[in-house]
Design a binder for these strands. Structure first.
Lengths: 332, 332
DNA sequence: GTGAAAGCGCTAACAG
DNA sequence: CTGTTAGCGCTTTCAC
């Protein structure tokens, strides 16, 4: 509106007003404990009067720390939205901001290129499907943490839920209810989480002497679940449909119901992740809930500067949520 | 890992290798069209060899453009996740990155403070509940756009769906189906969207001679919907429960069903926003779908530098989605 | 505790 | 078309 370009307020302006050197003014904002009480107050007063705000960009240039952590996530999927939300909150607590790089599939390359320009303090790869060579290019001395990828690349610290224990618990649970056959519903087959959940379910089913088959949803989505549900209806219902993710399970349940099946009785359905919707009455889904708070806390710890010797692979147990999609019991 | 601190590659390194001046090397990345073909190639080769990546932080400091747009959103709510996702994608198309500032309620203040330090190119306020005085402090010559706030502050451009036309269409729709009474379910009463949707629904109901009452969900959440649903069950069902948002509607539907009501027959339910889940079979909710793609495109246009004379108030019509939550017809 | 000088890596404004 | 000179706003030395 106003044609007058208000010059930006800097430490120099503040210093002049407070009658101290530029350096001292700056110090008040960077390390106040090194400045005498009176001086500090004078500078703060001057800053307030001028409406001074420290310039984070300038600080970053000099200090080589941007105060920004990036996260690379797929542009859709409920689960990833949850992850981003938790990450943003956890980072805010330690004074870092979150820069979100979401990719559609094609433009991962551009995404990584963009990442490299900002001197990010660290980068969280919250997708099980970031190609290996891109990873290499993204590193560059930056701290990298792989989130939710149970088979991360060499030397990259990773944080994820204990997929194997979780899936095994689900198989045990349905077996305990008398189930004799399980059909595993794959999301994206190439994803490491899918592979691990699938193989664990299969192995555990064999150990317990259950029949194990599989169908494809082709993606970790609701529509993928509907697709898989049609396959289940066409092939004759197993005792259990074990979905690779909650979102898949929602689609499966809806498709089964529209085919006339009574979920929890005619067929049991399980998910994985523990989305908020899994507890909603319409689905009331038995699932493994990821302890996102603690997983994210670990992730933040690893992604920020500070000695962490050997890149560790951190795993936290999921929480088993038994609900009516397997028990058939009345709902809340 | 390696103890050797690899010095950062700069334009100077590239320039030396390519035997040109620093300025020329830099120009190849900033405005390649101003550099001779041969020179460009030589510089590019040198850059590739050294693994040079332009430093966005340094560019920002000098050019006063960070290449980053911020968005302030509540830390939860399906709808806001959708908004963030669309924004990130739209900004990526124009070469900008998205910095997400999510707030929990208490720390809005810190959030705004953090915002000011990064020389953001623009800031999108994607919440109907950012206090006015904070807005003032966030401005600072920066481009500000209010998203989804139908009653934005003076002089701040805003973009939102046409709430009035949408709600009126819903009232007309249920009236056309023979409904005689509507109970409006409030989310957060203080929110501008809630006020506008509520008053429009009330006015339109009066015009058509329908009985109009209201109950409170207290927040735009699933749990808020459950709460409101209990109130509805206790007070005797109206012909229509008109929720202030989809997420509220999901809770209402689940609560009504657990109370034995048959949604679509005993009572009609409508939402607002058009979340993906509204089309899921379990809810199949009649709602007004926000044309997020076009709304976000407008938002991006307004938030980036470029002449936009009078701060406009842009409104786009929502898409009426009629589904079985009002018609009771068989589902897909 | 405070100040002076230097420079992070880039771009704006000019010369040549 | 290319090079030179500054300097963005801050922090890192190192004196005082």
């Amino acid at each position: 509106m106003a044609a007058v370009t208000k010059r930006r307020i800097t430490t120099v302006d503040v210093a002049n007003l407070a009658n101290v050197s530029q350096r001292t003014a700056a110090r008040v904002f960077a390390s106040p404990e090194l400045v005498a009480e009176d001086t500090r107050r004078a500078v703060e007063a001057a800053a307030a009067e001028l409406g001074y705000v420290p310039n984070a960009i300038a600080r970053s240039l000099k200090s080589q720390r941007s105060g920004i952590v990036g996260v690379v996530v797929p542009s859709s999927g409920q689960y990833y939205h949850e992850v981003v939300r938790h990450l943003a909150r956890a980072l805010a607590r330690v004074g870092e901001q979150l820069l979100v790089f979401s990719f559609d599939s094609a433009d991962v390359d551009d995404t990584i290129a963009a990442v490299r320009g900002y001197q990010l303090d660290g980068l969280v790869l919250a997708s099980a499907t970031v190609p290996g060579d891109l990873l290499e290019r993204a590193r560059e001395g930056r701290r990298l943490v792989s989130f939710n990828d149970p088979a991360p690349h060499e030397g990259i610290p990773s944080v994820s839920v204990d997929n194997e224990a979780g899936v095994a618990a689900l198989v045990d649970h349905v077996a305990g209810l008398g189930a004799r056959s399980i059909t595993f519903v794959n999301g994206l087959r190439a994803a490491a989480t899918n592979k691990l959940r699938r193989s664990t379910s299969r192995r555990r089913a064999q150990v317990l002497g259950l029949t194990w088959t599989e169908v494809d949803g082709r993606a970790f989505t609701y529509d993928g679940g509907r697709r898989a549900g049609r396959a289940l209806l066409a092939g004759g219902l197993p005792d259990v449909a074990m979905a690779a993710s909650d979102e898949l399970a929602f689609g499966i349940i809806d498709e089964l119901r529209s085919g006339g099946a009574h979920v929890g009785h005619d067929i049991k359905v399980t998910g994985f992740d523990g989305l908020a919707q899994a507890s909603w009455r319409a689905y009331d889904l038995t699932t493994i809930e990821q302890p996102l708070d603690s997983l994210i806390d670990e992730t933040v710890r690893l992604v920020l500067p500070g000695r962490v010797e050997t890149p560790p692979r951190i795993t936290a147990p999921g929480i088993v949520r038994i609900r009516s999609s397997t028990t058939g019991h009345p709902l809340g």
